[in-house]
Design a protein around this nucleic acid. Structure first.
Length: 243
DNA sequence: AAGTCCAGCAACCGCGTCGCA
DNA sequence: ATGCGACGCGGTTGCTGGACT
């Protein structure tokens, strides 16, 4: 049994995208908006899997992408976010407008890991690399304290911890106080509907996961200012990290 | 100039999650 | 309550082009 394939593999192209395919995808999304990835390839006349189309659009064709090298400020922001969030590339990408999760993930693996090692820090734990034996120690205590977390109204509400709600190991691999709220439009997100309305919602969301997840915390980089369009009403959302 | 190595990046794959019937 | 379909995410793979011998 198992999961059915996401598409008819026998009749789909794989590998690098051609200019013509790109153009077809861009034209289709310009006309109809994002969403319904499963039906998009057929509708757009593409011999591609829906997932492939989505990836191509999100990682390469989206008009709001910022191409080019990462700035030192972005580097530091990525490092700090990674220390807070772990390998949650989509969340990290959400705080870097114009950057994609794939791009950040690749950049992390190729550049930042080395940079941290050069600084004598373990890229996984962000703790100092001391000795081989120390590297075998278990990861640091896993507890993600989310000071204010709400998923339904876009406002910060009762205090809780992510660990309480989502006890998966990943989430517990970081130690901080972190406030997460959702921007108002997020509450209207309905995934499986292909209505014109949902398409508009998706269009408005395109490339702006940054606004979808509001991390009300203060980075040294951003000291004194709250990053992003935070509508968290709490003044004490903060993140602590020991470097 | 040709061959090899390797870093960087685009794309794929499999799984988890969510929403609907 | 449950099964299924669709989407999104993170890990991995493989291609490409530049550096090096």
């Amino acid at each position: 049994m198992g999961r059915s394939p996401c598409c008819e593999k026998a009749h789909t192209n794989k590998g690098a995208w051609t200019k013509e395919e790109d153009q077809r995808l861009i034209s289709y999304i310009a006309a109809h908006g994002e969403g319904c990835w499963r039906t998009l390839p057929k509708a757009a006349g593409l011999l591609r899997c829906g997932k492939s189309c989505r990836l191509r659009w999100i990682n390469y064709l989206r008009p709001d992408l910022k191409r080019g090298n990462f700035t030192p400020e972005e580097d530091e922001l990525i490092i700090k976010l990674h220390s807070l969030l772990g390998n949650k590339w989509s969340l990290i990408a959400g705080r870097l407008p114009g950057r994609t999760d794939n791009e950040i993930k690749n950049y992390w693996n190729t550049h930042i890991k080395r940079k941290l090692i050069g600084r004598g820090l373990d890229p996984l734990t962000h703790r100092p690399l001391i000795s081989p034996s120390a590297a075998q120690e278990p990861p640091r205590p896993n507890k993600l304290n989310v000071a204010e977390y709400s998923v339904d109204d876009g406002k910060c509400s009762s205090s809780t911890t992510v660990e309480d709600k989502q006890p998966e190991p990943d989430r517990r691999s970081i130690n901080l106080e972190l406030s997460i709220g959702l921007a108002p439009f997020q509450s209207g997100t309905q995934r499986s509907s292909c209505s014109a309305e949902s398409k508009m919602v998706r269009q408005s969301q395109a490339g702006h996961t940054a606004a979808a997840v509001c991390l009300c915390w203060q980075l040294g980089l951003l000291s004194g200012q709250r990053s992003g369009n935070c509508n968290c009403q709490s003044a004490n959302g903060l993140a602590s990290i020991d470097y």
